[in-house]
């Protein structure tokens, strides 16, 4: 749908010159824009591509799918998977499920917060790590568990956590050095 179909002053921001198209989303929109019930899928794909859902991105999706921005925002904020701020290069997902809680997830959280100097939901100043709590990673018998990007680490102890984080930092430094 084009910008012209909305009347000027509708308030949805559709005629706002600042909304630049998000070109990488074209193929996703082509596939899903007209399929009813696809809003969550579109938001998931958009987050996969851009890392997070900026307000402009959500406005663009609203415009292209002909769904009101209020609804797009309402759906996006309902689900914990969606993020509205950029995240670090490594996303640390710390399990706070029942099994992990019983086996000391709080202690692990403290070690991570101490080591990275951030709280739940925050990103380190160098943009390397973001810390998120999640409800269960489905590896409960290896609790406590955390997942960093696609790798799951189980049977964590404070020392093990520190080593894992140090290893990632060192690996990243050497990669940066090579560049």
């Amino acid at each position: 749908m084009s910008h012209e179909t909305h009347e000027h002053g509708c308030g949805c921001g559709c005629n706002d010159e600042r909304i630049k198209p998000f070109d990488d989303l074209t193929s996703v929109l082509k596939k899903y824009a007209d399929v009813p019930g696809s809003l969550i899928t579109v938001l998931q794909k958009a987050q996969e591509i851009y890392g997070f859902l900026s307000f402009d991105l959500m406005r663009y999706i609203a415009l292209e799918t002909d769904i009101s921005i209020a609804k797009v925002y309402g759906v996006a904020t309902f689900y914990t998977q969606f993020r509205f701020e950029p995240i670090g290069k490594y996303l640390v997902m710390l399990c706070q499920g029942t099994a992990c809680h019983v086996n000391g997830a709080k202690m692990i959280e403290e070690v991570v917060m101490d080591d990275l100097n951030i709280k739940e939901g925050e990103t380190t100043a160098d943009g390397l790590f973001t810390l998120n709590n999640v409800a269960c990673l489905g590896c409960c018998s290896l609790s406590p568990v955390m997942m960093i990007n696609d790798t799951t680490y189980g049977q964590l102890t404070p020392d093990k956590v520190k080593n894992i984080l140090t290893e990632i930092k060192e690996k990243n430094d050497s990669q940066e050095g090579q560049k």
């Binding site: 899928t41 938001l43 998931q44 309402g74 759906v75 309902f78 914990t80 998977q81 409800a135």
Partner: peptide
């Protein structure tokens, strides 16, 4: 397959249906 987006209440069947339809669950 429809991948959920992280909401415990979506395990409840009517909420699950709402989520399948792209709504708040």
């Amino acid at each position: 397959i429809k991948a959920g987006a992280g909401a415990f209440v979506c395990g409840e069947e009517t909420a699950l249906i709402a989520s399948l339809e792209g709504e708040r669950g």
